[in-house]
Amino acid sequence: MIAWDGPAGRVLPVVTAPAPVLSAVGAEVDPCSPEIVQLAADLVATMRVSPGCVGLAAPQVGVGAQVFCVDVTGHPKASTTHGVFVLCNAKVIEASRWKAGREGCMSVPDLTGDVKRAGRVVVSATLPGSGEPVTVTTDAFEARALQHEIDHCAGKLFLDRVAGAHAVYQRKVYL
């Protein structure tokens, strides 16, 4: 079971590019430390109040750490979903079924871009609080979200993965 059941968190401000923390590799963390458990809770709280947000990584709230949350529940592009979960020190250990797809990011609020990602991934990580090792196997939109957040923890934005300027678009604003 990977669903988040930790403490309530605080809503934190989201940093935007070109903030240096977004291009730095995050530090591996001790998933059992109280600071990391609180950070996990804060990430979930911040994601929940952010319209359209399906994932949020520690660097996006100014913390250079390998921690992120994901929840694609109810998203029209989601097929597989594990609900709300937080992972520490996550690594993709298998990737297949590569496909391009449009991505956006709270840290790059004005742009979207076409990024080629694996449509099926297996990710190994640890859970905050317990430090329990987990393996997450998923596909489609949830796989894309995991890869996007793992990239944040490695100091990469989706803009680092687009094929070129022709694959970057101004975000549409709906009033």
Rank of each mutant, 00 (worst) to 15 (best):
S79R: 14
P59T: 01
V37I: 05
D110V: 01
L175G: 00
A90E: 11
V21R: 00
A100Y: 00
V11R: 11
S23W: 00
V49I: 07
A118S: 13
V121N: 08
G113K: 01
G64E: 11
C153Y: 06
Q147D: 13
H82A: 11
Q60K: 05
C105P: 05
G74F: 10
G83Y: 05
Q170H: 03
F141P: 10
P59V: 01
T80N: 15
I93N: 11
G155D: 02
V14E: 07
G164A: 06
V136R: 14
H82W: 10
P133Y: 12
R120W: 12
A95S: 13
G55V: 03
P7Q: 12
C69R: 11
F141L: 13
R161M: 13
T126L: 14
A78T: 14
V11D: 12
F68Q: 01
C32N: 01
V67P: 08
L22H: 04
G64C: 13
T80A: 15
E35M: 00
V15G: 00
Y174L: 05
L111R: 07
L87K: 11
G26W: 10
P18S: 08
V61P: 09
A167L: 02
P7L: 12
C105T: 02
V84I: 10
G129R: 01
T137M: 08
Y169T: 01
T81W: 10
G113E: 03
D110C: 03
P34I: 00
K156N: 00
V49N: 12
L39Q: 01
P31E: 10
A95N: 09
G64H: 06
A41L: 09
S33F: 02
V44A: 07
R117D: 12
A27W: 02
V86C: 04
K77M: 15
K91W: 06
G6T: 01
L159Q: 04
T81L: 13
G9K: 00
V123N: 15
S107L: 04
G26Q: 10
R48W: 05
F85A: 11
C153N: 13
A163E: 15
G164R: 03
A78N: 13
G83T: 09
K77D: 15
W4V: 03
A90Q: 14
A58T: 06
A165Y: 02
C153F: 10
L111Q: 08
G104C: 03
T138V: 14
Q60I: 06
R171E: 15
C32G: 06
P13E: 14
V61R: 08
Y174N: 04
T112A: 02
G55A: 07
E28L: 06
R97V: 09
A143M: 05
S130C: 10
A145T: 02
V92T: 12
P34E: 02
R144Y: 10
F141Q: 08
L56T: 13
K91D: 09
A8H: 10
Q66G: 02
G113W: 03
V63T: 04
A118M: 11
K91N: 08
S124P: 11
